[in-house]
């Protein structure tokens, strides 16, 4: 799951996550998407750029163990 706040500055960022994904889907570059969303500090930008959601992958093994 995407972090609710930026680890470094504490600004709330999660409310823009789905919008960000939608923009990427439209074919925009990550840079353009972040600029449009107004994420201008590099601490918050790296939160978006480096996030990898593992919950979908966990879900594939749901029920397989325990």
């Amino acid at each position: 799951m995407f972090p609710i706040r930026c680890f470094s500055c504490g600004a709330v960022i999660a409310h823009k996550w789905e919008e960000y994904l939608a923009k990427l889907k439209e074919g925009k570059s990550a840079k353009d998407a972040l600029n449009e969303l107004g994420i201008d500090r590099y601490c918050c930008r790296r939160m978006f750029l480096t996030h990898k959601s593992v919950i979908d992958e966990f879900a594939r093994f749901r029920g397989a163990v325990g």
Partner: peptide, 12 residues
């Protein structure tokens, strides 16, 4: 909540 669209957890 200030924002109503913060994802908290995905339920399957």
């Amino acid at each position: 909540p200030v924002y109503n669209n913060i994802p908290v957890v995905q339920l399957y």
